[in-house]
Simulated scan of single mutants.
Amino acid sequence: MNDEAIRMRSVSRRHGTGEGAVTALDQVSLSFPRGTFTAVMGPSGSGKSTLLQCAAGLDRPTSGSVTLCGTELTTLSETKLTLLRRRRVGFVFQAFNLLPSLTAEQNVTLPLRLGGHRPSTARVREVLRQVGLGERARHRPAELSGGQQQRVALARALITRPDVLFGDEPTGALDSRTGREVLALLRGMVDGEGQTIVMVTHDPVAASYADRVLFLVDGRVSGELAGAGAGTIAARMATWEAVPC
Rank of each mutant, 00 (worst) to 15 (best):
G179P: 03
T67I: 13
L183W: 06
H139C: 14
G64Q: 10
E143I: 01
V131T: 09
G115V: 10
L83M: 04
G167N: 07
A184V: 00
M41L: 15
T23G: 01
E126Y: 04
V131K: 07
Y209F: 15
E19M: 13
L165F: 14
T75Y: 04
S176I: 11
A184N: 14
S222I: 11
N107A: 09
S46N: 00
S29F: 12
F37V: 00
R177M: 08
M237S: 14
L216A: 00
D203P: 13
T38Y: 06
S145L: 07
E19G: 14
F215I: 14
P100A: 06
T171H: 05
R60E: 00
T71D: 15
I6G: 06
P111Y: 11
V182T: 06
V200W: 11
G57I: 07
L185K: 00
P33F: 05
A235M: 12
S176N: 02
G188P: 05
T50C: 09
L154H: 06
G116D: 09
R118I: 10
E72A: 13
L73S: 08
G194C: 02
V108C: 10
E241F: 05
A226Q: 05
L110E: 14
R138D: 15
T239S: 14
M199T: 03
A153P: 02
S31N: 07
A230I: 08
V243Q: 15
Q53Y: 10
P111D: 10
S208H: 14
E126N: 00
A226F: 04
T232A: 15
R236L: 12
L158F: 10
V200I: 05
A153D: 06
G20P: 13
A235P: 10
V124H: 06
L81A: 15
F215A: 12
V182C: 02
S120T: 14
G188R: 06
G20N: 13
V213H: 08
V28K: 08
R85H: 09
E169L: 02
C69F: 11
V213C: 11
M8D: 00
E105H: 01
S101C: 11
L68S: 10
K48R: 05
L216Y: 05
E72H: 05
P162H: 08
V190A: 09
M199E: 03
A21Q: 03
S145M: 11
L185P: 04
E135W: 09
R60N: 05
G57M: 03
R14Q: 15
G146R: 02
T103G: 07
Q94G: 06
G146V: 05
